[in-house]
Design a binder for these strands. Structure first.
Lengths: 127, 127
DNA sequence: GCGAGAACGACAATGATTGTCAAAAACGCA
DNA sequence: TGCGTTTTTGACAATCATTGTCGTTCTCGC
């Protein structure tokens, strides 16, 4: 399978490289429109899905509903997310990684991946 | 807030006590219908939500789509889920709990919760 | 037994995501 | 550079779990 370089794919990648934090597909689509880029919503969804599959961006499924996408630093890590304002901090947890793999191995599981999100209230949002 | 005991709430609780593994709201609703219990789908959703809020059942949001509910053992724990057949194992990880709280505290976060799911392929489903 | 308030449930509404398919663009090759 | 093949695009429709609505029904304390 060969991936072709298209204007739309570049635009999405470029946008993700510039923005901070998590954004929904619809957010990103709106931003592209504001920039004058003409990209269809369907294409934004598919492009994000492709990037996520390729491991180039992170996907988060907050309890609230829509999927959020974000360009992240390299390597595996997790997120500490403020329930109130959405502000996120990347956290690394080597101990957790090894723990997860060990537990999975104990039960004979292979091809293991995992998701971990920590939710809380950040200092500015505390009453 | 006072929770009232209704036939429907009892039916949902009883069903959850009997079935194994995770089931979607629609699944559970169908099972109730098969039993002859007349419960509305809306009510099943609301009841499950209430039970989840009360911490009596677990909610899982698999990448596939719908929410899955399950009556779980007491105490905080996580799940090791087979991507192929859905078979799940409960796993406890005290180390992870303390790690999550410590990380959150380091960043000044309060009111902390977290979600952790491990996905893999269980032995019977391995090729 | 009674009444206020909670819960129910049929139905409509929401809204993110996915499918469709003809038109357009990209790439390999000569 | 020109051409044909194959992928990609994107407007629109379709899907589908979940949530809102609101009149009716049921609980529970008194």
């Amino acid at each position: 399978m060969s991936l072709r370089n298209t204007r739309q794919r570049s635009a999405v990648s470029a946008l993700l490289a510039e923005v901070e934090g998590f954004h929904s597909a619809q957010d990103l689509h709106a931003m592209l429109r504001d920039r004058g880029e003409r990209v269809g919503l369907t294409t934004v969804y598919r492009t994000l899905q492709g990037l996520a599959d390729a491991g180039e961006i992170d996907v988060m499924r907050p309890p609230g509903g829509e999927h959020l996408y974000r360009r992240c630093s390299e390597g595996h890590h997790h997120h500490l997310v403020c329930k109130a304002c959405g502000w996120t901090v990347e956290v690394a947890g080597p101990a957790v990684e090894t723990w997860a793999e060990r537990v999975a191995a104990q039960h004979g599981f292979t091809n293991v991946s995992h998701t971990l999100e920590i939710f809380g209230t950040c200092p500015p949002c505390s009453p």
